[in-house]
Design a protein around this nucleic acid. Sequence first.
DNA 1: GGCTTAAAAGAAAATTATTTTCTTTTAAAA
DNA 2: TTTTAAAAGAAAATAATTTTCTTTTAAGCC
Lengths: 133, 133
Amino acid sequence: MTESTLLLKEHHLKATPQRIKIISMIEEHGHITIEDLYKEMLEQFPSVSLATIYKNINQMAQSGLIREIKIPKAKSVFELIKEPHLHIVCDSCGKIEDIPVETENIIKEAEKLSGYKINESFVTLRGTCPECR
Amino acid sequence: MTESTLLLKEHHLKATPQRIKIISMIEEHGHITIEDLYKEMLEQFPSVSLATIYKNINQMAQSGLIREIKIPKAKSVFELIKEPHLHIVCDSCGKIEDIPVETENIIKEAEKLSGYKINESFVTLRGTCPECR
DNA sequence: GGCTTAAAAGAAAATTATTTTCTTTTAAAA
DNA sequence: TTTTAAAAGAAAATAATTTTCTTTTAAGCC
Ligand SMILES: [Mn+2]
Ligand SMILES: [Mn+2]
Ligand SMILES: [Zn+2]
Ligand SMILES: [Zn+2]
């Protein structure tokens, strides 16, 4: 039983070959767009439908297996839900990296200032990566 | 000379009635979607085209007058660019608030960890507002 | 205040993104 | 194996955004 299959079972989703492939592509890339998922999927499943990608991505997001990350001035990417982290995007080459920065302080501060009960935080930074300078 | 007109001049954009209206709507609402901009614009300019909204929003974003804020699981909103702040969205009623929280620490930390030179940060929190509890 | 003109508005069509519907196929449970 | 609810795929529908083209207009100049 593959890793992806296991994840699907845990989330009570049927382990179809297409879904297994989607999950392993997300795992492999870390972050990936719908477009790239589709392109890469076509290599292995030449008759896959884009609707299959969308339907599965939506279900997986719904069931808490993956999450959409909206990127400023770029297409959304999808990632497996793991430990909290923030994202940093290179303006020049588009690369997206995970950074394990602690955001608890900001969240506590924001809760105090706003009176909200905060459930999730999305932090995305944009700048220039070391390779692009 | 109205406030909106002045902003447009400063950014070297022709001060058309449609643009003045767009800016004052953004100012008035704080954050507003394309859809709501269009609906409200129609009241005053019954023949306005959605393309006019898009073209202007894109130009204004390009010239640094406004900014798009991508919201998790919801439509993007647009805001005037002012002092840095973060956003907090209520899961229940959809309300979006600005919070003047200091993010310098996180940014410095992320720069150190990643080696990136960071130019801008987007922080969006989701949770439940005081009124929805 | 009347010209001039580049830029903007508006209308329509085109493109791109996403969802829905419907029929066929299949994973998983019995 | 057989059964069946769920998923895949194909096609069409809908939604979001951009482009093209013609008409109108803001702003600079006399
Ligand atoms: Mn990530
Ligand atoms: Mn804001
Ligand atoms: Zn780079
Ligand atoms: Zn609320």
